[in-house]
Amino acid sequence: MHSGGASLAVDALSVRYGAAAAVRGVSLSVSPGEVVGLLGPNGAGKSSTLKGIMGIAPVASGEVRLGTVEISGATVAARVKAGLGLVREGRGVFGRLSVAENLRVCARDQSPMSIDAVLAMLPALEPLRSRRAMLLSGGEQQMLSLAKALVSGPSVLLIDELSLGLAPILTARLMATVRSMATELGLGVLLVEQHVNLALGILDRAYVLRRGELVAEPPIAELRADPASLRQYYLG
C-alpha cells in the first residue's frame, strides 16, 4: 500500500491514564505482509497499546517508528499520513454520512488504494454506497470501518476487535479478507482479538500481553495445535 511497505517498530511504549499505567514498556514489531496478533485477557492493555501507537491515548514514554520515520511525537493526522491506520473497536463509522461519503472523507490523494479498489476487496459494500452508515448492519459497519482505514492507504494497519458483536461466520470472512490483503499487498497488520480461535488461523506471529506488560511470544504452530495452552500465559 504505502510503496515498499514499511515495518512498524515499537520500543518500550508506556501508556498512562492519570496515575494508572495501562501499558508498561511494550516493545514489538510488525513487518510488511505480516499479520501479528496481540493477545491477552481483558484489561491487559491491548487496546491501549494500539491507541498509544496511534497517538490517541496518552503516551508516557517510548518510541514508535514506521520504516525509518520516527513518529512518537507526531499528531494523529501526521501518523496517518506516514502510513499508519487504525480500525477502532466498536465500528467507528460516521453515522449520518453515506458509505461513499464515509470513504471519501478518509480517502487520501497519496493513497495507492482507490475507493473502487477497496470496494472490490469488500464487495458486500458496493451495493450500499449511497446508504447512510447508521442504517447498515453490524457486519456491514465493521466492513466499512475496515474500508475506511484502507482507503487512507496505510502500510501498517492496527485492528482493534474486528469480531466485536459479530457472528462467528462474519468474523471468519473478515479475517480471511485481512489475511489476503496482507499477503497480496504487503500490508502489515497488528490485530487485537478476543476470539483467539478465529484469529489463530490467520496469524503469523503473536504477542501475549498481561497487566500491561509483554509476557510471551509463543510460537503460532504450538497455539494452533493446542489453543488451550494460551491459558497458561494468561494466568502467568
Partner: peptide
C-alpha cells in the same frame, strides 16, 4: 459526531 474518527482519516 466523531472527532477521533476524522483524525484517523488524517485530517485536523
Amino acid at each position: 459526531q466523531d472527532e477521533v474518527g476524522v483524525q484517523l482519516a488524517g485530517l485536523s
